[in-house]
Design a protein around this nucleic acid. Structure first.
Lengths: 184, 184
DNA sequence: TGTACATCAGTGAACGCGCGTTCACTGATGTAC
DNA sequence: TGTACATCAGTGAACGCGCGTTCACTGATGTAC
């Protein structure tokens, strides 16, 4: 059921999504989901929660998979992009409900992915960080760049508009962010 | 009418938007819009078109308003963020229809804003650019970072989650991107 | 100046549709004795 | 082993609703003579 919702979200985007359709996709009647979820929003929240978990796991996996800090950092960037690409449904759900405040659980799990990012960053720039370099801010910049590239790539604007490869763009961009941050 | 649509888009986001509501907001009957637009999508396209025009004008204005290349570049970054903040309705419309390919006019006007960015970049890094530095790619990175910061800021994740100021984050990030690109 | 006509933005009633949700129900599965 | 009962995922019909869109219309404005 959650899987069906994720599929539909991937195909139709956040605004084209309907409970009835998701149920149809899962091969059950429109009333069946109400056995498992209070309402439509609860289903979407569950999809988002699964997304956060999956995302955090991938980020941690990327971090743990490399002993070299730079390689680990690059792997995390690629993992971000890959997640947005592989699971656009979950990704949409995660950033959808966000008009209201995130539920506490979701936030905690989302943060755990972000903390992995900060950890990787700290390993790269040395601890303690150079004076005037706030790891949190740099991490936010990396995050924003990743998010931006993922969104522009998802709508095809980078590839079709400019013939640019998203992965390469992100890796180079992150490298430049870090280099620009530690240089004088 | 277009103004009403823009307002509603701002308040409710892309998925909460309805023609009927927009007409109500404009103080006319639900049928009235059909005098001016073929259907709902045509209205949204018109809002998006207006957004692209406004956006390009702001970018060009920011570029023209400063003789110092660096100041001009910073101003463009701020203009990007300000536009996304002031006109979330138009911004949403611009990036909404984007699942399909953009109409030719929209694309041309959107590009004109992007070209202003490249122009400012070229003035900053010198012409011809240093070897191995593709201005187009750097521009895409700046764009992606701006887009990412704008979206995260719009959903309040930067401010409420981490107490980070979006404007400062963007300016510093862009500076780092450029610095990282021209340094060895 | 006055009359006849064309234009056209807006009206309000109506339509068919898909949606989210409710309800009493069915039927399979597991448990107690 | 067999019978009685509880649990519970799923059914299908029904509801009220807001949506996008159509239609014949009205009434104000502008133009021609």
């Amino acid at each position: 059921m959650i899987e069906a919702a994720r599929q539909l979200l991937s195909e139709r985007g956040a605004q084209g999504f309907s409970l009835v359709d998701a149920a149809r996709r899962a091969g059950v009647s429109a009333a069946a989901p109400y056995r498992h979820f209070r309402d439509k929003d609860a289903l979407l929240a569950e999809v988002a929660l699964g997304g956060f978990k999956d995302f955090a796991a991938r980020q941690k996996g990327a971090l743990a998979g490399h002993s070299d800090p730079i390689a680990a950092f690059r792997a995390m960037g690629l993992a971000y992009l890959a997640f947005a690409q592989d699971e656009p449904g979950a990704y949409a759900a995660m950033f959808m409900g966000t008009h209201g405040p995130l539920a506490a659980t979701d936030k905690a799990i989302g943060d755990s992915g972000f903390e992995a990012l900060i950890k990787a960053l700290r390993a790269m720039i040395g601890d303690p960080p150079p004076p005037g370099l706030d790891p949190l801010k740099l991490a936010c910049q990396v995050w924003a760049l990743s998010h931006g590239v993922a969104m522009l790539a998802a709508s095809g604007q980078l590839q079709h508009g400019f013939g640019v490869d998203p992965q390469e763009l992100l890796l180079e961009g992150v490298e430049r962010l870090v280099k620009g941050a530690i240089k004088p």
